[in-house]
């Protein structure tokens, strides 16, 4: 989780990732932020995040993102 929070804070430092759970639904992250997050996560965790994973639920909270990362890593 620490690593993920570090990555997220590098992209947008003005967000309280630990407590927000509607990052996409409430429009806190915009499309450009989401794409930056996806490209960072792909690099840092060496995973392929596909278009099928691009749902609001997967990016609404740091926890959801971590779950998605773990799931993709398991599938590989």
């Amino acid at each position: 989780m620490e690593k993920l929070l570090d990555i997220l804070n590098q992209i947008r430092s003005d967000i309280d990732y630990e407590n927000e759970n509607a990052l996409v639904d409430d429009g806190i992250l915009d499309s450009f932020d989401i794409v930056s997050i996806v490209s960072e996560l792909s690099m840092e965790y060496d995973i392929d995040i596909s278009i099928d994973d691009m749902t609001a639920e997967n990016f609404n909270s740091a926890e959801a993102m971590l779950e998605m990362i773990n799931r993709i890593q398991d599938e590989d």
Partner: peptide, 14 residues
């Protein structure tokens, strides 16, 4: 949903 993300995540762009 159907243009921006697919293009951003497409092979050429990545």
């Amino acid at each position: 949903e159907y243009v921006f993300f697919p293009v951003m995540l497409s092979k050429p762009v990545t």
